[in-house]
């Protein structure tokens, strides 16, 4: 399963990064959101870290929709989904490959969002950057596990962008709230021990949706059109 998942992830990343397909739109949308939100503060004024963290994760959540629509759209152009289903690899390897590819792409986008949020929202990061990256990567895995699972639901449907948004956002709430609180803690330089419950929420979210995806994905990703 891992070999096939890596093949899917490698192929998706190659397609996404050659010509920056799927990335440019995501980065532009996120930057636009951060910039528009920054207009709500007075010049020279510093946004509260909680607001900055919320805007960062909002940009991430919208970016995630674009990323997974792009990743699942790759198979729809010439029907390659049927080929994946006929391969001897477990169907879950498609979920895992897309989740890993989405994780990498989303993280690349966030590497642009983060400095933009710091600059436009007037933040000074008091905590460790390494810890911040760890928090972002941990929350991202949950988002991508769920995004890759639900991305399969919207495959082949003309209204897939809106469908994915409608079903994904309500389920993302716990991970996003945890991400906001943890990132706010990192920005303000407090230790994560102050928000231990939110750390637990992220770990539980990642574990629950990884397990759920491994069980449910074969029922969602089928040859029916």
């Amino acid at each position: 399963m891992l070999g096939a998942a890596l093949a899917v992830a490698r192929k998706d990343l190659k397609l996404a990064l050659s010509g920056a397909q799927g990335l440019v739109q995501t980065v532009l949308l996120g930057l636009l959101l951060i910039f528009i939100m920054s207009l709500s503060r007075e010049p020279g004024e510093m946004s509260p870290p909680l607001a900055a963290a919320a805007i960062f994760w909002l940009a991430t959540a919208f970016g995630q929709i674009l990323v997974f629509n792009f990743l699942y759209g790759l198979e729809e152009a010439e029907g390659a989904r049927l080929g994946l289903l006929l391969s001897p690899a477990p169907t879950q390897s498609v979920w895992l490959g897309k989740a890993v590819a989405g994780w990498v792409l989303l993280f690349c986008c966030q590497l642009v969002f983060a400095p933009a949020a710091v600059a436009f929202l007037g933040q000074s990061v008091a905590g460790s950057v390494g810890l911040g990256l760890l928090v972002v990567a941990a929350v991202d895995w949950g988002l991508c596990a769920l995004g890759s699972l639900l991305g399969a639901l919207s495959v082949g449907r003309s209204s897939r962008e809106s469908l994915l948004t409608v079903i994904l956002f309500p389920l993302l709430v716990p991970a996003l709230l945890a991400g906001i609180r943890l990132l706010e803690t990192v920005i303000s330089g407090r230790g994560l021990e102050a928000v231990g419950a939110w750390t637990g929420t992220v770990v539980a979210f990642d574990a629950v949706f990884t397990a759920a995806a491994l069980i449910l994905f074969p029922f969602l990703y089928t040859g029916e059109e």
Partner: peptide
């Protein structure tokens, strides 16, 4: 082989086949 070709248009012919080689173990 269906009505669609099941290939990735943005990959080369060789890369397409290498991908399916990997997927089929």
């Amino acid at each position: 082989l269906g009505h669609k070709t099941l290939i990735y248009p943005k990959l080369t012919a060789r890369a397409n086949l290498a991908f399916w080689q990997a997927m089929f173990g």
